[in-house]
Structures are given as structure tokens and as C-alpha cells.
Nucleic acid binder design. Sequence first.
RNA 1: GGGGCGGUAGCUCAAUUGGUUAGAGUACCGGACUGUCGAUCCGGUGGUUGCGGGUUCGAGUCCCGUCCGCCUCGCCA
Length: 628
Amino acid sequence: MSSTLQTSLQRTAACGELRIEHAGQPATLAGWVNNYRDHGTGLVFIDLRDHTGLTQLVFDKEDAPAGIVEAADKLRAEDVIAVKGKIRKRDGGPNPKLPTGEIELVVEQLEVLAKADTPPFQPGDEQNLPGEELRLRHRYLDLRRPKMQHVLRTRHRVTKVARDFFDALGFIEVETPNLCRSTPEGARDFLVPSRLQPGEFYALPQSPQLFKQILMVAGADRYMQICRCFRDEDPRADRQAEFTQIDLEMAFVDREQVLETMEAFARTLWKEVLGVEVPKFQRMTWQEAMDRFGSDRPDLRYGLELVDISDLAAKTDFKVFAQALEKNPGSGHPSTRDGGVVKAFRVPGGAEKLTRKLTDGYAEFVKQFGAGGAPVTKVTAEGFETGIARFIEPITAELKERMGLEPGDTVIFGADGYNTCSKALGELRQKVAKDLDLIGKDQWAFLWVVDFPMFEYDEATKRYYALHHPFTAPRADQAETLLSAKPEDKQTLLGVLSDGYDMVVNGSEIGGGSIRIHRRDVQQKVFQLLGLGEEEAKAKFGFLLDALRYGAPPHGGIAFGLDRLVMHLAGTENIRDVIAFPKTQTGADLMTEAPSGVDEAQLKDLHIRVVEAEVKPVEAKKLSANPT
RNA sequence: GGGGCGGUAGCUCAAUUGGUUAGAGUACCGGACUGUCGAUCCGGUGGUUGCGGGUUCGAGUCCCGUCCGCCUCGCCA
């Protein structure tokens, strides 16, 4: 059957909205054929789908004009049709699985708007989800799935709530450029060649950071933008090279005002989207988060807290402990010098639940974070047994007291430099929580992590790096220390705290920001410490230094990761699920087959020559990309 | 750049130690059927086991390379 070019039937209802009270009324529906149940010459059932749900259509020879049942007989999955008929209470009894399950539409008029080829997979079949590769290749089918429609709509809801919330507080949305100057710090830039200026390049923005600061200097007062950002680094389950930020900045504020505003936004979001009342956020310093959880974005939905037992470990004869404690000797806080530590966490009831197989796996697991292993032991009424029990026997009483150990617990140890030890145990803590199913459903553990160090020092390149970014202000009480410090005052500089903050929920960083530097001398000092010479700073950030010269208000802000917010609100573990057209791990869009080669003429315009040896074998790529 | 897992019918998967004609469910095609809703029943089509090479009497299975996808370390101011 050929389909029509235009529909003469106009929808009067969506497929998910008809109820028993509509029985007796006429209705016109349009949508996709989800499913057909063909009872032969006289009776056909079709489930018609749109983004709102399903309605059962009945084509019954006894109730329908001649020819319609025969036409319905030919309908297949994903055909697009419009139907007109009468709503009635179902003859065959209700289907409790459907919201529309008490009614059906008796079809009197059928229009086939588009026949569909047999689809590679059926969006209506939630039981039998195809592989993600296929879903991405046929994203138009994948997005028809009710779950994906829900995500699209959740995402819309989030941006809508954001715009309304901040508009009510006097924020204005301002667009900033996508063709930007490349910046030296931070992630790898995506570059765009300039046609008009041969050999020069734009960079796509990693964030509108400097533009929004300039807007504060320009008197915008309160700025917001929902903007795309680009970082040319390898993706992860929660990270895409191209992602979206809800970007915000406020003038004449201190940290407290920013945190209050942004916390109110997050709570509004959870209330509006999920109906969840989020209690006031906890706050935790970066140092405390690292000490207790081995992470700057701790998941507070469960315990398994890390305890420093270095002093007790020093009393044992265990070589692993002794060697760790000798690492990176020096004075000062362990976090700034990576001094050797021994830490441990208690797994309540672990003696029974943590099998040998699991704990052996943990030893392997921590190796990927640079740790040598993860010694374990079990707690008994008398002391310890198995694992490293005999080594820690001398400190039995003290260890039990320090960690609150109970018989039946397992203790997992880590011994290394502070950074490695914290990272390894922090990651292991999360793994144990998952393995033992300690994470309750529908728990929301929000917190602010504050008081980050300004700098970290990289031994390989022998220089400081900004932990957040180079425009983050030092905490007010640290400014003088910073200004008077010399680059060689390493202990002092590594101890300087910034006025930065991260919003964290369930172990995931969903927003990060800071009070910015609004004083030119402070900004210059930071550039200097980061190894940017005066000339270089002027060349790369002259516009910022100039702007700071002409009257900059104190300001600060935050950027939320929109994709991650939606992940949490939609309950998905994968960032690709909340992006309509995401890319794979090799940066490919499987539907459009981007990236692609371009014409010689285009390259010539852009003054670009591709080095042949580095071109990927296109034949092989195309062959496996198109199995059909 | 490193580590791990995967790729078999349109789709989801199976195939003993390397051994006969690579199977099942579903989809698709044909037929039957007037109350189904994962419809049912009968019959049928459908495969260069990602690609290339190697070992072997014999490879979906073993080896090497490569491509694609996922997880991850590095990276992500």
C-alpha cells in the first residue's frame, strides 16, 4: 500500500491519555505501530505508540467499513499511521499493564502516513534491548523508546527549571563565543583552522570561564548560560568530549552567597523533577574528604571510612608498612608532600561476606591505582585471624579501639605515599560498597567540598599547576601568604587554600566553581607561580589583566555539568544515555559517521595539509562500520 | 599511550578438548484463526562466525595483526 503525502486526519488526543471516562467519544490518534496482533480475516489489534504511551486500536470487520481490516492486516512494526474512530470500553477486558488499558479505539478510518522497512530492532520491545552500537547507529529508533523519551524530557525539564530559577533571581542569559582563543592550561583543545588567517587556529571553548568573568567586569551582575563545552580528552562512562554546562556567575558576592544560591537551585531541581526534598547540604574540606574517604568527591551514602593508623603501623614488624612509612620523607602535612601513610577501613560483617575470591580481587584492583596490594584480616573476639593477622597482633587493642572493630569485621589496609594510598583505598571503598550492596536506593547524599589547595606540584615538569583553574581566588585569609610567597617556598604554597568549591552528590562531581581573582596583582602573582612569564601572561591573558585594571567587582560562580545532573535525575549510569546524539569512545558519531575526510578544496581553503602516514585506513573503517 | 572484556542469522544469544550439515528464541515471509495484549498454531527464508594472515588432516574455537564497541589507567586547569 502506498502512503499518503499529507494527512487529512488531525490528532485530537495523544496515545497515552485516553481513559475510561472518554468512552463513547470520537477520537483521532497518530503514531507508530508498536505491535500487531492479527486474528485473521476479521479482527486485528494494533498498539499505537507515541511519546505519551500506547493505545490499543481495534479493526473489527463487524464494526468497520469495508477494506479497513485488510489494510490493517498489512501494518507492521514502526509504520506511521493516523486513525479516526470511537473510544469504547474494551470488549475483551482491561489490560492492567497500560494506563489506557480500560479503553480501545474502534477504527473507522485509517491513513498510512509512512510504511517502515523492518527495523533492525523494535523500540517498543523494552525486554530485548539491542547492543548500544546498534542503538547509536539507528538513534532515531532508539530515541523512540519510552525510556529515552523520558530522558529527553527530563533534560528539557532541567534546563527549563534552571532558566526559570535563575531568571527569578535576576540572572540574564548571555551567549559567549564558540570560536575562541586557545588557552595553554587545562585540557587539550579542539582546534578550528582559520581560513582568513592562514596557519592560525581557533579553539572551541573548554568553558566560557573568562568571558563570564569579563561579563562581571562589564556590569552584567548575574549571568547564566546553558552552553556547550569541548575538551579533547578520552571519554568515560560519565564524560564526553562535547558536553553541556549550566554556567553561572555573580558579582559582589562572597562564597557563602554563591553556595546558598546554588544549593537552593539544586534543591529546587530535585523537588521539581523528582519531588524529592533534599536536606541542607553537608560541607567538608578537601583535606577531610581526602583523609576520610580518599576522594575529593566522596560518596556519603555509606560508611567504610578510612582511618589513618600510621602511628600504630610503625609499632609492627610488617615490612610492607615499614617501607610505606619511609616513602617521601620530609616535614609538613602528608597531603602536601605525599609522605608515607598506613590507612585502613573497617567492613562490618566482612568476615562472612567478603570471600577470599573477592579480597584477592581487591589486591589486583588497587594495583591499577599504583598501590602494591590490599592486605586484609578478619576480626575475632580475641584478635585477628587470616591475612596479615600475625603482623598486627602487637597492636590489637589499639587498632580495635581506633577503628571501633567488632568480631566478624574485615579490615582492609593500604600502605603507600599519601596520594597513592588515599586514591587506592578510596576507589576500593567504592568497590566494596557495590560488592556488598551497601548503597540504598533513592538515597541522595549531597555535600559541598570546600577549601581546596590552590596548587599542586608536578615533579615531572617541575612546576605548579592550579588545582581548579588559574583564576580561582585564594581564600581571603590566605591572600597575603600567597602574595608574599616565592616560587621556591613549596611547603607554604602547597598549603595555600583557595576559595573554590565542588558540589557533590553520591560520589559524583556535579558542579564546581570558585570566587575569582578580581585583583590584578593577585592574578599576576598566580600566573607567575604557574610559570607564565610576564610577556607570556600578557600575550595569552592580556585582555583579562586589562579588564582587571579598569574596575572589577568581586565575583564568583559555578558551572554545573548538565549531563551529569540529568544522569542522576533520570537514574542512568551512562552519559551517552542523556545525550541525544552522543559520540563513542573514539569520538565517532555512528549515525552520521563523523568525523570524516574532506575535499582537497576544503583543505586548501584552510591552508591545511594532511600527513598521509597518519591517515587512518579508511577502507577498513568503512567496511566494519557498515555491516549491511 | 597502557590494561581488561566483547564482536556468531535483521536482533538477543548458544555451540563440550579443535571434529559431521553452526543451533535456539525473536523478527521476517506464507498459511490458519473474531477478543488479543510477549496473542496462539503450522510451515518456510535467513550465516564469508568483524576483517586479514598463520598453525592444523580439520578453526566459530588456538596464534599474530587489524578494525569496531564497551569498561578502565594515564588524561579530564
